[in-house]
Design a protein around this nucleic acid. Structure first.
Lengths: 199, 199, 199, 199
DNA sequence: TATGAATGAGACTTCATTCAT
DNA sequence: TATGAATGAAGTCTCATTCAT
């Protein structure tokens, strides 16, 4: 009746927000559509005006989430920098972004593998994409002479493994390091290695 | 009296095996007790002779699995070796073990976070234990002068992130590298770093 | 908008009515939720919109029933009367009420003891309440000089035993006496005793 | 193997005893065959060597119980006595008997109505028998001139209502009166009535 | 005779989804 | 567009009973 909440799509957004809230709290299977509706201040039926099913709602969140994460790394900023700077930037921005969107992060990273086949494959494809991006940067670094000659596939996977691991710990409050310092320490380890005296 | 395969506990084992099968295929929530029973060649009720509930059955698998994984790293073998050898051994053994128990690996690593609070905390405690073990090895390496002075907490987490990531890829047939070569490449990257010419 | 029978709570009432029907026919343990639902013209799940569980549904019927029975005895009407009139009125009203609600009576009196501990204690407390009420009336009668001096506890229990026994027989069609005549005969026996010539 | 427990039917008796124990504690529907077996110190399967089913086992207990109760009233002792003495004796013996067999009493009186149709009818027939017996005694008393002229059907039912009510209270420890005094008080009320000054 | 591992019918309950309003 | 009462498929779990030993 009011004109206040008649923003286009406001209800849809409220539902998405509520879904992130509930999914992150309960996980996909323990999340109840009714609770999402209640959290969104909507009726149970209303969700189905905007989303075909629970799974579709979840998928939309996942996709939105991954796009967010992707966009959080501003590729254009990377071009001019050294590999170490690139990697540090990617890590730091990822950490910061996850901290700003803790709940979304939990949903995206915890439930990603557990749902259905379709979703699982899609998640893997995204993961592969990330690996490819990093692989490209690494190969560029090797060409530049900044990196030594190594297996870029293995190297990119190592980095792809490390980033979400620390992100999860930050998000789950298991680790309250400063993201920037963390990113510096990690990228230093990646570049320099842990060993002493190699020449 | 016979020497048939009706040894004591054979049914229980069959159920556990079937459960690993089904859980790894479908995930915890999509696994149906009836399918587990059928896979085990048992009746629905038989499962409940040995396990109180679906969750308890799952927990037993998880614990068995983690214990397997833990025992797969033979600490006594590590003592006499250099850090690089230690880390390479840990990684290689972990990879080999996961490959030998692909389905169990999937269950343990994929569904670990999705179940109930109790289980989640237990999984985190195991994870922490692993980090502590590695942290200890790293600090020992620093004292030895084999490793440079670095934040052992961050370093151990990096390694703890890398190991299961590659294990999952091997297990999911996304990567069919040779585990030993993989372990060597990874441990070299960890020790030497990716960068060139640091002295 | 219509004046159909879809009044608020109509479904709930239908379920309660169906539950009385089925419980009285089959008893608590042999009553199946599905049959109650079908009898109510509702889906299986609908019952759970209104009642948490089978037991809760049963408890609600029991409580409603006992309250009915309690209210069936109009205490205000008793005050001005002699004890014999009081007792006759109580019995007669109880009988009439049970005959009007045969199925509810069966549920309340037959299944009362068989369910869970909580319910059992509650039923006993109601029973005790009845005994107390009658004990009060009896003691009043003794003070009035209408009754002889006797153990009011024993006397009240005797009456509390008699009432439901006859009620059950009426309700189960084992006895088709007229309730009012029955009440008169019973109360006469109670007052006068069965013996001859005591003075 | 031993000769000790090879008494004929000892196992059967143990099962019956255990069944009374468990039925009286849990009620028919909450009693588990497994618990009965365990209580009897027998295997689950052994029960079925002696009883066709849970229901049959229960029925046997009921019948045994009722026969006990019936035999507990020694009719031959009644013949020579006055009605008041007869009724007092019946009540007192019933009370004493119930107190001696508390568990059996609980089974017989609490669960009697709640099982299946067959059993229910049988129980009602027993009840009717009791009523007939008392009716006979009453009519004899009327003929003797010991009792006033009254509806012997109603009178016998009143007594049949009173006896088990007090028995239950004694057995459930709700009332710890002395059975003999209780019987005297009850029979006096029955004979003399509660009212004063009738001549 | 005695056993208890195995069974599976059947019960309760959940919850995503529909649809009349 | 928004709702929430109603639904019923589907899941977990129980427990009397069977049967090979």
């Amino acid at each position: 009746m009011d004109i206040t909440e008649s923003n286009r799509g406001s209800k849809r957004d409220a539902i998405l927000k509520a879904a992130v809230e509930v999914f992150s709290e309960k996980g996909y299977y323990n999340a109840r559509m009714e609770e999402i509706a209640a959290t969104a201040g909507a009726g149970k039926g209303t969700i189905y005006e905007y989303f075909d099913s629970k799974l579709k709602l979840f998928q939309e969140i996942m996709e939105t989430g991954w796009n967010f994460f992707s966009r959080s790394t501003h590729l254009e900023d990377l071009m001019q920098k050294s590999f170490q700077e690139q990697i540090e930037l990617i890590i730091a921005e990822h950490m910061r972004f996850c901290l700003e969107h803790k709940k979304l992060t939990r949903v995206v990273f915890i439930d990603a593998n557990v749902i259905d086949e379709e979703l699982k494959e899609w998640v893997w494809s995204i993961r592969l994409e990330k690996e490819q991006l990093l692989k490209g940067l690494i190969e560029q670094g090797i060409e530049n002479g900044e990196l030594r000659v190594l297996d870029s596939g293995v190297a990119s996977k190592m980095i792809c493994a490390i980033i979400p691991y620390f992100a999860m710990q930050l998000v789950l409050d298991e680790d309250n390091s400063n993201p920037d310092e963390l990113a510096r320490e990690i990228s230093r380890n990646i570049m320099t290695g842990m060993g002493k005296n190699h020449l």
